[in-house]
Amino acid sequence: MKFSIYRYNPEKDEKPYMKDYDVELQHTDRMLLDAILRIRSMDDSLGLRKSCREGVCGSDGMNINGRNGLACITPLKDLKEPVVLRPLPGLPVIRDLIVDMSQFFRQYHSVKPYLINDSPPPQKERLQSPEDREELNGLYECVLCACCSTSCPSFWWNPDKFLGPAALLQAYRFIADTRDEATSERLDNLDDPYRLFRCHTIMNCVDVCPKGLNPTNAIGKIKEQMVKRMV
C-alpha cells in the first residue's frame, strides 16, 4: 500500500517535505495505525504519538487524506491510495506527525474542566436523576484528540482567543452537570466575542469527530442557556 507522509525534523531539515512509502501489509493490518507502525519498523526515524491503539487515548490524531481522524480507528480498506498523512493542521509541528498541543490544552484548562461544588459532600455520593445524567451523554466521551479544534477555521485564525470546539464541548459538559454549582460563573467566563462567539457554526468539528460527538450542538446549548439567563 502506498503512503505519502509529512516529514520534518527541525534539527536536520530546512523545511518540511513529503516522503513516499510503499509497504507490504500483513492480513492482520486492519487499521491505519497498524500500517504506520509497519512503516516505522522500516524507517524508525518517523515520529508519531500513539498509545492505546483503540481510540480511547486520543494520541494519534492526524490529518488523513485531508481529513482529521484517529489513525488507530481508521480502517485501511476505506482509504484511497496514496494515503496522505500530515500532522493536525494549525498547531506548531514538533517533529513529523507530532504537534505541540500546549495551545489546545491551555484553552481546555481555561474552562475549568472539573466539578465545582463547595457544598459539603453527602455521606455517599452526589446523586443525579437518570434524566439529568442523560444530558451528559455525548459530552463526557471526548478524548481530547484535538481533531475537531484543528479542523475549525475559527480556531486556526484565533487559537489563542477562541476556545475551539473541544474546550467548548467540555465547558458545556460541566454547565450541563446538575452537581456543578458554578454554572453562572462558567457562563460569565464564556460570554466573550472571541472565546465563544467566534464559532460561526461551520460544523467541521461535527464532521471529523472520531467519537461521533457534536460540539456544535453543545455550543448551541451554551448560547441557549445564556439567552435563558438574560431574558
Binding site: D188, N189, D191, R195, K223
Partner: peptide, 14 residues
Amino acid sequence: VVVGAHYGLRDWLI
C-alpha cells in the same frame, strides 16, 4: 486568570 469579556451574547442575538 482567563475570564470572558462579559459581552458578545447581545451582538449574537441581534
